[in-house]
Design a protein around this nucleic acid. Sequence first.
DNA 1: GTACGATGTCATCACTTGATGACTTACGCG
DNA 2: CGCGTAAGTCATCAAGTGATGACATCGTAC
Lengths: 189, 189
Amino acid sequence: MTTPVRAGRTRNAAASREALLASARTLFSERGFDNTTVRDIGEEAGVDPALIARYFGSKVNLYLATVTAEDADSGRPEDLQHPAQLVEWLVSRVELRGPGPVLQALVRSDSTPEIREAARGHLTRRLVDPLTAMLDARRVPDARVRAEVVVSALIGVLLARKLGSFESLATLTRRELVDLLTAMLPDLS
Amino acid sequence: MTTPVRAGRTRNAAASREALLASARTLFSERGFDNTTVRDIGEEAGVDPALIARYFGSKVNLYLATVTAEDADSGRPEDLQHPAQLVEWLVSRVELRGPGPVLQALVRSDSTPEIREAARGHLTRRLVDPLTAMLDARRVPDARVRAEVVVSALIGVLLARKLGSFESLATLTRRELVDLLTAMLPDLS
DNA sequence: GTACGATGTCATCACTTGATGACTTACGCG
DNA sequence: CGCGTAAGTCATCAAGTGATGACATCGTAC
């Protein structure tokens, strides 16, 4: 046990790595994979972009690391009991932390298949599977496909709102949005 | 009245222009703006990409031309009377002709503001406004914001389906999808 | 049939991107 | 101290991008 993980101040590999990861998450989440450059990430993190290669190997691997980090995140929707809570959770999360790199990938055709697959798996595990279980428990028919429809619909609405594509949608309060979505999707109530 | 518009065979500016426009629509619709190169468009159209500059000025202008062409398209949803018909129309359209360059833009953060604005206006005019009118006529409260939610939700679902992001969703027949969406969104029935 | 303008081709520019490796600097141990 | 290595910096590469303009070639009017 030689060096503690957060060793020195000015030179700190762990801190640089985390800074890159955090910036990558933010930027991928805002702009998608292709529209984020490693130089952007480095600048945002205050770290030389060459270190991305050192710590993550490549831009793609950095992206995959953000997905993994997302998986390890707190506030698991698996704990929720009622579908309406999932809407609440998802909306809050997007409002507070941005759509995240994964939601973007659902409806974007860019990126390598590798990336799409990672995002797809993440979404299925974190959102579709839990929702399917909830619907099943409530004897909703076609639970799985309905869960997929709900998740992709929610993502469409949340991304459109985040991007300011529609005026009325963008100006709703969070509460109003949650209530409206719950009202409009009876499977959730 | 010197030269008819569709003059010679081998050399035909109008035909080349149309070929570029059609290919651009297809590729923008599949990959989004940034992930489509002018070389791709030229190859797909069987036309030298340099002609894009000649006939449209720039790649951005070519995109805007596809949006305008979309506006002039047949099968206007404005003619529809019932919200459920709009789902039918939108689903059919996406299945047959792809999502189109405009739907992509709703949930994508790439592209210039210029492009986003054009796509936004198009969507509002073609989908949100008619749906708002229909909901208004049926005395649905908050018609406009509900229309925006429905449209962005539908786009989320259709893009996810088109991209194969979710398995069950991708394997539905068109009919099943329409019925399911109509059932899940009571505003539409 | 010939000359001119419209149409199409091509090489190339300037720029951006992800990646790489040689170089420099600071930390921490002895 | 001073040295070795981890950490950070920088110049540069190769590939790809949109755009441009010089050039070639076809079609048509005269």
